[in-house]
Amino acid sequence: MYDSWLRLGFDTVRLGLEAQTVVALRLAKLSLGGAAAQIEAQRMVTEKVEAAAEAAMTLATGGTAERVVRDYRRKVRANALRLSRG
C-alpha cells in the first residue's frame, strides 16, 4: 500500500513519462504504414479498452490506486520493450 499520496503522485508521473516512450515508438511504427502498422493500431485500441476494463474491475472489487498504477506500468514497460526490439 502507498505510504503517502506523494509517492502515488510520483509513480503516476513515472507512468506518464514511460507511456510517452511507448507513444513515440508507436508513432514511429505507424508512420511506416503497411500491415505491421495496421496490426499495431488494432493492438493499441484493443489494449486500451482491455486495460481500462481491468482497472475498473480492480477498483470495483476493492483494489487500490497503487494496484492500478502498478498494472498499467507493467503493461507500458512490456510494450516499450516489444516496440524497441523491432
Rank of each mutant, 00 (worst) to 15 (best):
V45C: 00
G33C: 06
L27D: 08
R43V: 08
Q38N: 09
S31Y: 03
T21C: 05
V13H: 01
V69N: 01
E50M: 14
R82H: 10
L25V: 02
F10N: 12
M1W: 10
V76F: 10
M57F: 08
Q38H: 09
N79M: 09
R82L: 08
A65P: 06
R26K: 14
L32F: 05
A56K: 07
Y2R: 15
N79A: 14
A36K: 08
L17R: 10
E18W: 10
R73I: 01
A80I: 02
R43G: 02
G62D: 00
K29Q: 11
V13Q: 10
R67C: 03
T46L: 08
T58S: 05
V45E: 08
G33E: 01
T64L: 06
L8F: 14
R85W: 04
L81H: 06
G62F: 09
E47M: 08
L30E: 07
K75P: 04
K75I: 06
E18V: 02
W5K: 09
R85L: 13
R82F: 03
R7E: 15
Y72R: 10
A37G: 03
L83E: 04
A24S: 14
A80W: 09
A51R: 15
A24L: 11
R74C: 00
R73F: 02
L59I: 14
A65L: 13
L30A: 05
Q42P: 02
D71I: 06
R82C: 04
T58I: 14
L17I: 15
A28V: 04
L17W: 08
A37V: 05
R14C: 03
A28P: 01
R70M: 08
L17N: 03
S4A: 07
V76P: 01
A78E: 13
K48F: 01
A51G: 07
A19Y: 12
V45W: 12
T21M: 03
R74S: 10
N79L: 09
Y2H: 11
R74I: 02
L83N: 05
G62C: 07
Q20A: 13
L25G: 01
A35K: 09
L59E: 12
R70W: 02
Y72H: 09
R67M: 13
A35Y: 04
